[in-house]
Amino acid sequence: MTAGLTLQGVQYRHGMKTILHDVDLTITPGKIIGLLGENGAGKTTLMRLITGSAKGKGTIAINGATIVGDRKQHVSFTEQLRGFARETRVDQVVNFYHDVYGDFDLQRYQDMATFLQIDGSLKLTSLSKGMKEKLIIALTLSRRTDLYLLDEPFSGIDSMSRKRIINSILQWKPDDAIMVISDHYVSEVAAILDEIVIVKDQTIFTHEATDTIREKYDVGIEAYYESLYEKGNDYD
């Protein structure tokens, strides 16, 4: 069994269109990964392939589990709560998660909810964008599992909420768990990332340690990322 997350020869097509091809990727346990790429580059598709909710070709293994049904127990993904009625209260959603996921740690949820100031009595429809994002993060991190996939957790939220979410990630991520955070901005999270994976041209364009980029090229992560979209860059 190989520990960590491994993708080999992964392909995904939608109709006649190739969304991702030749995706090979190995992430070792404990790492925090920034999954970067423009809107529509295939970041969410890649996450859905890993969870098994999208079906493509190739092999995906999380701590050795390759079959979709087995894999699901090893991964916690930021679901957008679309399956719940608008009138559902936050604590009802929490109870649902607790019932459905055997690895859901209620105490951990309570600690996070206190820290993130989430009011359990509110209805989903009355949550602000930032509050909803905090709830999604707390639900996702309350499962004790091997891989956490956070799909653009900082889109459209204020800087205070962002700081609290980043703090929660650092505080509650289990030591050996992998966390993949997708974003099309990198400056917000650059300091907490071990490695970045850039999705470009329908495949993994770059996979490199952040401090290696800083040492090797003497540039910041954001500048490095942006340079890949400009002509004539010389980072080979």
């Binding site: 404990g30 980043i166 650092l170």
Partner: peptide, 17 residues
Amino acid sequence: VRQLALDVTANVNTVQR
């Protein structure tokens, strides 16, 4: 290590290094 990581807002692996 984890407290240091929280204090400086960096990740545990980086603090460990």
